[in-house]
Design a protein around this nucleic acid. Sequence first.
RNA 1: GCACCGGUGGCGAAGCGGCUAACGCGCAGGUCUGCAAAACCUGUAUUCGCGGGUUCAAUUCCCGCCCGGUGCUCCA
Length: 492
Amino acid sequence: MTLRLFNTLTGQLDDLVPMDGKALRMYACGPTVYDYGHIGNFRTFLQIDVLRRFLKLTGTPVRHVMNITDVDDRIIHNAAALGISIHEYTARFEEAFFEDLEALRVERPEIIACATEHIPRMVELIQRLAAAGAAYRTEDGSWYFRLAAFPDYGKLSKKDLSGMEDGARVDLDEYEKDSARDFALWKAAKPGETSWDTAIGRGRPGWHIECSAMAMEYLGDSFDLHAGGEDLMFPHHENEIAQSESVTHKPFARHWMHVRFLLVDGRKMSKSEGNFFTLRDLLIKGYKASAIRMALISVPYRHQLNFTFDGLIEATNAIERLRTFHQRLTQGNFPPGASPALQSAAETAQADYLAALANDLNTAEARAPIFDLLRAANTSIDQGQLFAADRDAILAVLAGFDAVFDVIEDHDAEPTRRALEWAAQSGRLADVAPELLARQSLTDEAIDALVAQRTQAKKQRNFARADQIRNELAEKGIVIEDSKDGVRWKRK
RNA sequence: GCACCGGUGGCGAAGCGGCUAACGCGCAGGUCUGCAAAACCUGUAUUCGCGGGUUCAAUUCCCGCCCGGUGCUCCA
């Protein structure tokens, strides 16, 4: 199954296959660790996760590099304000970032590269650029990329820069540049700022150079795919191409994938609009990590996603149905044998599911066959017409679904627990949803005991008492389900 | 201003030239149940922003308009 993925560079759907015939080499721009990640960041990482999981599911090994930008203006500024080193400052946000990725079940890339650990590679690249006449040094000791040296500039974002050359908007800080659009490769050290003493002078790297240096370090001069948020297309990715190809004269990345921004309540998320959410904000409001994952994944990556709390509730309910179904299959007893109708339904579902994802990662379309199968199977179970071999076939389809979506198996307790811990430590307890606290207030043992009491009451046909217990539990978000196979309960 | 994307049922969202317009959530009625929950069944867009055009045939292609969003600067 070959993935047809939209390629920003060519403007069309292209097959995504490893050019070396082995593993798919991909680079994805990671976070700048100056604050907690917000859901917009995570939509991008989640969609890239969908991509890599699909590749793996369909038999393509992945070598995925993600960078961590751990030095930039904001970091330097914020660290200085706190009077700590940039490493002390970034360490906690880097840790928080990975904790958040784990909560969202985002697989860890094979290689994670920090900018500050690759300074020599960047310096070397700048030297090569200088040798090629594509970089120059200004009086203050900064280095810039000479845009005029790269005629292909703009090929990714399809920008025609000829009309906007050295326009009216000239940045006063950068008057030394040859051309207003030339971008910084290396910023000369300013007094008191973190800097590195190198062959090209004392200073720190510009933002774009780190990705070129690290991508080439781990993936070679040319690789299969480069991915990131849509905002990075210009200028970041354009600049990466310019820097890299000016040195290697080979195509940098063959395929470019850009994830569209999400909106919150129909507006671009921003701190000033008051519609800005970190993952932690949502977890302490009582939303489950799986629901957030599902909501952010279910709209295909090339479409704007309007994030709302209603959408989160919808995702929660959809996941609940899937989980209940899964449980029904794994816990039920099914006689040996197979039903031809279900066998073929499972086969169809599997094929349609994979085909939808292979079509530019159409996650919305991919969900449909799974729910179709769910309904068909539930009907058969109700009619006593589902057999052991059917169960196995259907579970295999669900496994394929979860290999990408990863929401059926329940891992929600831990992220919520950690978020509550974090809230307590960082003075955010006031923001924790009361319902969440109520839900957490009963231990599993306490619930089991109450459920047992209710079962006893029911046996004695003391329904008033039984209902009383059920209502008490319901108030704390515990739902009881009676079935032929016994009583089940779950936290809402 | 220039550029790009989108407007499909109560909501989210597929489909993009021809099957009864997927799927999810919600809602209403029914089956089951001590009652619920879960599950299933039925119903829930004669219609795809508006107006033209092309075509035997358009939600799907073209033109115009209206509305929403995003990019052009740091940003996932």
